[in-house]
Amino acid sequence: MSNGQLQTLKTKTPEEGFNLAVKLAQKGIAVTQPSEEIRKVLRPVYSRNADSLIATSQVVAIHFQTVAFANNYWN
């Protein structure tokens, strides 16, 4: 992402693709809750909640699936 803008889903490796998936998930949170102050208040709550952590993993996995498809699964 350059200047906060998504330029492409293309990555050289699956590891870069996973990192992009994590960034996409993080950006989604920032768009959903634009207040960094509120996110900082909420973080201790959800970071200790197993259901929240599982949901976060699911979001990253969905983004990774999308990135992998865009990269033809890195043949």
Rank of each mutant, 00 (worst) to 15 (best):
R39P: 07
A61P: 00
S35R: 06
A68S: 15
G4L: 07
E16C: 01
V59L: 14
Q7W: 06
Y46K: 08
A30N: 12
S47Q: 08
F69I: 11
R43E: 14
T32F: 14
L24V: 09
V41G: 06
R48G: 11
Q5G: 03
I62R: 02
T11C: 08
G28P: 05
Q33N: 14
Q5I: 10
P14C: 03
S47L: 06
E15P: 00
G4K: 09
N49S: 11
L42Y: 13
Q7R: 13
N75D: 14
N19D: 12
Y46C: 05
R43I: 04
A55N: 10
E36V: 12
I54K: 15
V22K: 00
A55Y: 05
R43T: 11
Q7C: 03
N49K: 09
M1G: 10
F69N: 11
G28T: 10
V59G: 00
R48V: 04
S47R: 06
P14L: 01
K40M: 12
S47G: 02
N3C: 04
K40L: 12
N75E: 15
Q33I: 15
N75K: 15
V60C: 02
T32V: 06
Q5R: 13
Y73N: 14
M1R: 05
S47H: 04
Q26K: 05
S2A: 09
V67C: 07
E36P: 08
E37D: 11
T11I: 02
I29H: 03
Q7T: 12
S57P: 01
N3W: 12
S52V: 00
K10R: 14
E36F: 08
Y46Q: 10
L20E: 04
T56L: 06
V41E: 14
G17L: 02
T32W: 11
K23W: 04
A30C: 08
H63T: 00
S2D: 10
K10T: 12
N49Y: 11
M1Q: 05
E37T: 14
Y46N: 08
A70S: 14
A55E: 09
I38L: 15
R43C: 00
P44Q: 10
W74G: 02
H63W: 11
A25Y: 06
R39A: 09
V60G: 02
P34M: 08
A55T: 10
S57E: 10
Y73T: 08
Q65C: 01
L42Q: 13
N75H: 13
F69L: 12
Q65K: 11
F18W: 14
S52L: 05
A68V: 01
A68W: 01
G28M: 11
L24W: 09
G17D: 04
S52A: 15
P14G: 05
T11W: 00
L42V: 15
D51H: 07
Q33F: 12
I62Y: 00
S2Q: 11
Q65A: 06
A68K: 07
A70E: 14
R39I: 07
T8F: 11
V41R: 15
L20G: 06
Q58T: 10
S2I: 08
F18G: 01
Q65N: 07
A61E: 11
R43K: 13
V67Q: 07
K23L: 03
S47W: 04
T56F: 04
A25S: 13
E16R: 03
M1E: 05
I62F: 00
T32E: 13
N72W: 01
I54F: 05
L42W: 12
G17Y: 01
Y73S: 12
S52Q: 10
